[in-house]
Amino acid sequence: MNAEIYQQHILDHYSNPRNRREIENADLQYRDSNPLCGDEVAMYAKLKDGLMEDLSFIGRGCAISQASASMITEALKGASLSQAAEMGKEDVTRMLMIQISPTRLKCALLPLKTLQAGIRVYQNGAARN
């Protein structure tokens, strides 16, 4: 863990985001924002056999929120919905490899929380059908 949050890998994901695109006909799609920073992120997933065959995001906001979104799509592409649903704060901070203040943690967690909310909406919808 490093006290300096703007590490090279964070800035790399921020300026060259992975999977930063919309998915047409996504099975799962959810948008949320962080009122503190004004960070916005929308997560998209295409499912096949319960796995996130494709996972992407679009958004705008601070480097931490956008790098976190990029890293999450990279880490969770191909993972199951339950794997994504079980991820927590520690997993995100471990992935970012930086020491983060409680305020900025909200930025870092926004993409995961948005994805998880999308999963809940998807599963509730699936349960009703």
Partner: peptide, 9 residues
């Protein structure tokens, strides 16, 4: 630069 990133630095 996003204002939050500027403020953090």
């Amino acid at each position: 630069v996003h204002p939050h990133d500027a403020a953090a630095i």
